[in-house]
Amino acid sequence: MLKLTVRRLFYSLITLLIIAVVVFVAVELLPGDTATAYLGREATPQRLASLRAELGLDRPAIERFARWFAGALRGDFGMSLARDKPVVDLIGVRLRNSLILGLSAALIGIPLALGLGIIAGLTRDRAPDLWISTAALIAMTLPEFVTATFLILVFSISLQLFPAVTVVPANAPILDLLPNLVLPIVTLTLIMVAHILRMVRTSVIDVMTSDYVQMAILSGVPYRRVVLRHALPNALLPAISITALTIGWLLGGLVIIEVVFNFPGLGTLLLDAIHTRDIPLVQGIALATAGVYVVVNLGADVLTLMLNPRLRTLRTA
């Protein structure tokens, strides 16, 4: 069990390393660099050359990567090329904002999804299931920017309950951010709930028709207990990994939603960084996102290991 966890952790670190390389190469392959982006129309060969020398862009790519990587190991992700600030400082507060948004959506969405999924699964093809499944299908099919725009139209413009876009600065205290959070959270939650719910529903239906659930019923075990003790622990196992995957998707979805609501999170920062070819910043953000993703998946793996006796008692030869 411990051995398995340690092994997963080791693989996670390798994943992060590969991501760092891939992001570096990808940005390197884009036409132009920070100097051209920064100088824009004022670029002359001389100014470009001197700026490149100043920023260290004239060094070979391998050397730049090695230097950055050595720094990253010490927790120093370098300076933002375009903004003249340490990458860590830039990311810090934005990561906080995005995490608040993502975690709130997850905290509301996951229990809601599990609950609705279980209800739908247990009432298969009857009224509650039909309502829940249809709603989930609609929520799933609409792209997040459509949902977001629709919510803005109803709650910000017609009802004037929440602000349509965020105007407070990125480093504002959480309390000031709060009203700005509601609509983005609702948008994220809607789509996430739909995905997880459908998975949970299928899995509950599968398990409820399994031999062991039938057997428990035929052994005179009360229905409530059959559901809670025999069915759910088995039905929720596959839900764990799908939830982790959904959270990964949520990180990507965040970029779009943050842009729509102009929310000062990691997503809007990433977009800026890419526009300005700010390689250290892009790399820092990519790594932070990947880190969250890896941690969530690691958590899901460990949780599955803990809940599934088949895996837990597996002899690792």
Binding site: D211, M215, S219, G220, R229
Partner: peptide, 27 residues
């Protein structure tokens, strides 16, 4: 349902064909 629960397992019990699949894997 309550009477049925008392009958099943208590007065009439079933031994199924496939024990591997009729035992709950997580218990």
């Amino acid at each position: 349902p309550a009477e049925l629960q008392a009958l099943r397992g208590g007065r009439i019990a079933l031994i199924p064909q496939n024990a591997a699949e009729s035992l709950t894997p997580t218990m």
